[in-house]
């Protein structure tokens, strides 16, 4: 097990480095910089600015410095546009927010999705099943940027129950709509996957044995069926996690929650390269680590999988 984790980490590290280098090369070759303005800056001033941000160094040195600062000091460099902030500060400010509603959304999607899938499988081909499957298909064609405005329209403008934006230190009223908007699509997908894999498991021999022994249904489901049925769901969770982090960009923009997604879009529009790169790399690292966790869990659930 340990050697498996180590081996996967050994693959993950070059992947992360490739990601950093790709983003850096893109940034380096981009036409137009954050310091280009309509009024030309005197050459001496420009040289000073470039020295301040290390842009006068040779290419390779710049890449090296960038990577080294991230790895050694968790320092993504200064923001090009927000002069008094470093990218690390911006990330530390926004990330807790994203993490809060992201974790909630993730938990909601997994718990409700699995429960819905299991119930649909147990009541196979009844109205419960049709209702669950139908709404799951419906939810999967509603990406969060479609769902978010509809939710605000209904719950904020028509019913007036919940605020349509803001964060307010994470008060629950402000968290509900972002979580629902973020979780729904993944909840639906998880429910669909759980249902079909649960159906397969429920038809297998060991479940028939358990039934023949006269075990109650809840015991069969919880003790025998759930674990093997979770395998396909688990492999979906890696991509789902990435999609949720990406989807949080929409949430931040639409609900003005102040998570990292907001910085990402704002800096993309302002050509604040260092912030975009910082966020991209952060998300990339999280993605790779999360996929690793999923792989390890996979091996733990199914001992047949050779590490």
């Amino acid at each position: 097990m340990l050697s498996f984790i180590l081996r996967r980490l050994l693959v993950a590290i070059p992947t992360i480095l490739i990601l950093i280098v790709i983003s850096f090369v893109l940034m380096f070759n981009a036409p137009g910089g954050p310091f280009n303005s309509e009024r030309p800056v005197p050459a001496a001033v420009m040289a000073n600015i470039e020295a301040r941000y290390g842009l006068d160094q040779p290419y390779v040195v710049q890449v090296w410095n960038y990577v080294w600062n991230i790895v050694a000091h968790f320092d993504f460099g200064p923001s090009f546009k927000l002069r008094d902030y470093s990218v690390t500060e911006l990330i530390l400010q926004g990330f807790p927010v994203t993490l809060t509603y992201g974790t909630w959304a993730f938990a909601v999607a997994v718990v409700l999705g699995v429960a819905l899938g299991v119930v649909a499988a147990l009541r196979h081909n009844t109205w419960v099943d049709y209702l669950a499957t139908g709404s799951a298909i419906g939810a999967s064609v509603l990406p969060n940027f479609v769902l978010a405005p509809v939710l605000v329209l209904v719950f904020t403008l028509w019913l007036g129950w919940l605020p349509g934006g803001g964060w307010n230190g994470g008060q629950w009223q402000y968290v509900v709509l972002p979580v629902v908007a973020l979780a729904t699509t993944y909840l639906a997908a998880i429910a669909r996957i759980t249902r079909s894999s649960m159906l397969e498991v429920l038809n297998s021999n060991f479940i028939r044995t358990a039934r023949a022994k006269g075990l109650p249904t809840h015991r069969i489901v919880l003790r025998h069926a759930l674990k093997p049925a979770m395998l396909p769901v688990l492999s979906y969770l890696g991509p789902a996690f990435v999609a949720m982090i990406t989807g949080s960009v929409v949430i931040d923009v639409f609900f003005s929650t102040g998570g990292i997604g907001q910085y990402f879009v704002n800096s993309a529009l302002n050509r604040d390269y260092s912030v975009i790169m910082g966020v991209t790399i952060l998300v990339g690292v999280l993605t790779i680590l999360f996929n690793l966790v999923v792989d390890v869990l996979y091996a733990w659930i199914d001992p047949k999988i050779r590490l």
């Binding site: 990406t246 990339g284 996929n291």
Partner: peptide, 8 residues
């Protein structure tokens, strides 16, 4: 595949 391409 493990690179979040939406961001890239």
């Amino acid at each position: 595949m493990s690179i979040p391409f939406m961001f890239v």
